[in-house]
């Protein structure tokens, strides 16, 4: 392979055309998953009867069934919607379940006394939730959320199999032109690695910063 073809593969095909799609997939699914996870997690954490049991079953389903199967099903069953929107829907549904469990665990980890103190001060429920409980939940949940986001980023590659033109799919297409798979897929691996690793590294810094913002400095768990 000539240098020019390397440049064309890496910059033009992967970085310029495919990476934006991957980033959109990540952003769209993350927003969707957080919405599902936050609402569901609060319901599960507050032990709302019936609804929390239903969501519990939903979580088990998402933990047991492969993303691949879910995406293929949505792709086969949905008559409307682009492959991008089907992928965002599928990834959001599955990742939302995991985020739900993280939020639920975080809420349950907040000491009961915090709720009781808020009650005795007659603080409204939503004030208690957003000013007191959720910041403390973030403290516990943030490392897990960052870990989950790494899994979500990697999970977007599966969208290639239903035709979504993200990094992996572009590589599959490029394979017909540049037959050296080690180079083509190697580049894709490197791009994913940089994204995930950067997130892990930045995430650690962010955790420290958030802990300081929430609990004041020199806080030790």
């Amino acid at each position: 392979m000539s240098l020019a073809s390397h440049k064309m593969l890496f910059f033009d095909t992967l970085i310029k055309s495919a990476l934006p799609v991957t980033l959109q997939l990540i952003l769209g699914s993350f927003v969707g998953a957080c919405l599902i996870g936050l609402i569901g997690g609060i319901i599960r954490g507050m032990k709302v009867p019936v609804l929390s049991q239903i969501l519990g079953v939903y979580v088990q389903l998402c933990r047991g069934i492969p993303d691949m199967l879910v995406l293929l099903f949505l792709y086969a069953a949905m008559t409307k919607g682009s492959t991008y929107s089907i992928a965002v829907l599928g990834i959001s549904l599955i990742q939302g379940a995991y985020i739900m469990e993280i939020i639920k665990g975080g809420i349950l980890s907040v000491d009961k006394g915090q709720w009781e103190a808020a009650k005795t001060l007659s603080l409204p429920f939503l004030t208690t939730l957003f000013r007191i409980v959720i910041p403390q939940v973030m403290l516990v949940a943030l490392p897990a959320l960052i870990g989950q986001l790494v899994l979500l980023i990697k999970g977007t590659s599966v969208a290639s199999t239903i035709g979504c033109l993200e990094l992996t799919k572009r590589a599959v297409i490029a394979m017909s032109g540049y037959s050296n798979a080690l180079i083509v897929y190697g580049y894709v691996l490197v791009i994913f690695f940089i994204m995930c690793h950067a997130l892990t590294v930045v995430g650690k810094k962010l955790e420290k910063y958030v802990v300081e913002r929430i609990m004041g400095d020199k806080y030790e768990r």
Partner: peptide, 15 residues
């Protein structure tokens, strides 16, 4: 740990 399994599979299989 920080790359997608699907791409790893392609890399190994076709590579």
């Amino acid at each position: 740990r920080e790359t997608p399994l699907l791409v790893q599979i392609y890399f190994l299989f076709y590579g």
